[in-house]
Every structure is written in structure tokens, then in C-alpha cells.
């Protein structure tokens, strides 16, 4: 462990891509202020995968890495819909998942919002309609905001969340 602290002290803070980092910083600042004003400082997201390829999930996981660090802005991915303000819905609403998505939505306390993530839930991804697909999601559930991309990058997700915060 001592090697770890040694390296940390020696290395200091690194910035590889100042332009990108600045953009992210601006978004982060706005998100933080917005979350503070509209959600008393903490916005709880419940991520639900209704049949995605795992790329959207990987990008949401990336939001927690040291580059983006979403939790610092007061946005948390929570473990239960009962702790959530917003459902972040990815995936193509498969036949097998649709009842579970609706169940999870029921469990979220009011007031609640749904944000769709990626091209799948609005049926814009290259997948075609089959008997096993129930997308688009708006046929089943009221959608407040959509973040497009296949998958949206962490930066696009942050921008999307900011737009959502401005919208409500």
C-alpha cells in the first residue's frame, strides 16, 4: 500500500485533454447546481436494462470512473426502485422483461420520471421488430426525456441528464 501513496504523491493531478476536461467541468458544475436546486442535492437513479447489449450499462458504469465521477455531483445509482426518483431505462423492452420493467416502475414512489437511454427503447437501433420485442417504450410507460446514442457516451449521458434537469 505504501507504494500506492508514494506514487500518488509523486504524480499529483494529471490532465491529458484540457479541452475535453473543461467541457466536462462545465457540465458537472451545471448538474450540481441543478440537482441542488431541484432535488435537494441528491438525485437517485434506478437503472433498468430491458434487453440491451450491455453497452449502455458499460457506459453508465463508466460514469463512476475517476474521469466523470457522477456521484460527486449528487447523482446516485440506487439498488432499489423504492429509493429512486428516476428510472433510467435502456434496452429494447423484450417480451420477457416488459412485465418486470412495469413492476419496477410501479415501485418507484411519486413523483417519478422515466428517462430512456440509447436507441433501443425508442426502436431506433438496427434491431428489427420481432415477436420477442415490445419496444417502443412509450407505448407502455410515460417517458419524460430521451438520451440518444448507440450507446451514448458518458459525456452524452451527462449532457442528457442536464437537459432532463432543465426540463422539469
Amino acid at each position: 500500500m505504501i507504494k500506492f501513496w508514494n506514487k500518488r504523491v509523486k504524480l499529483g493531478i494529471l490532465t491529458e485533454n484540457p479541452e475535453f476536461e473543461d467541457e466536462i467541468k462545465t457540465i458537472q458544475k451545471e448538474i450540481k447546481e441543478s440537482v441542488k436546486k431541484k432535488f435537494a442535492g441528491s438525485l437517485a437513479l434506478r437503472m433498468v436494462d430491458s434487453g440491451s447489449c450491455n453497452a449502455c450499462e458499460a457506459e453508465c458504469n463508466a460514469l463512476a470512473n475517476p474521469y466523470y465521477d457522477l456521484e460527486r455531483l449528487g447523482i446516485y445509482f440506487v439498488a432499489s426502485p423504492r429509493h429512486a426518483d428516476v428510472m433510467l431505462l435502456s434496452g429494447i423492452m423484450t417480451f420477457n422483461m416488459t412485465p418486470h420493467v412495469l413492476e419496477a416502475y410501479e415501485q418507484i414512489p411519486n413523483p417519478k420520471w422515466v428517462i430512456t437511454l440509447g436507441d433501443c427503447p425508442i426502436m431506433q437501433a438496427p434491431f428489427e421488430r420481432t415477436f420477442a420485442i415490445k419496444a417502443p417504450a412509450q407505448e407502455h410507460i410515460k417517458i419524460t426525456h430521451h438520451i440518444s446514442g448507440c450507446p451514448p457516451s458518458p459525456k452524452e449521458i451527462m449532457q442528457g441528464l442536464l437537459e432532463f434537469l432543465k426540463k422539469i
Binding site: G51, T94, F95, F127, A132, I133
Partner: peptide, 10 residues
């Protein structure tokens, strides 16, 4: 098989 999209058929 919750994410079963019937890719084979598609």
C-alpha cells in the same frame, strides 16, 4: 433469457 430478442429469427 430475459434479454431474448429473437436475433436468430430477426
Amino acid at each position: 433469457f430475459y434479454t431474448y430478442r429473437a436475433i436468430e429469427k430477426m
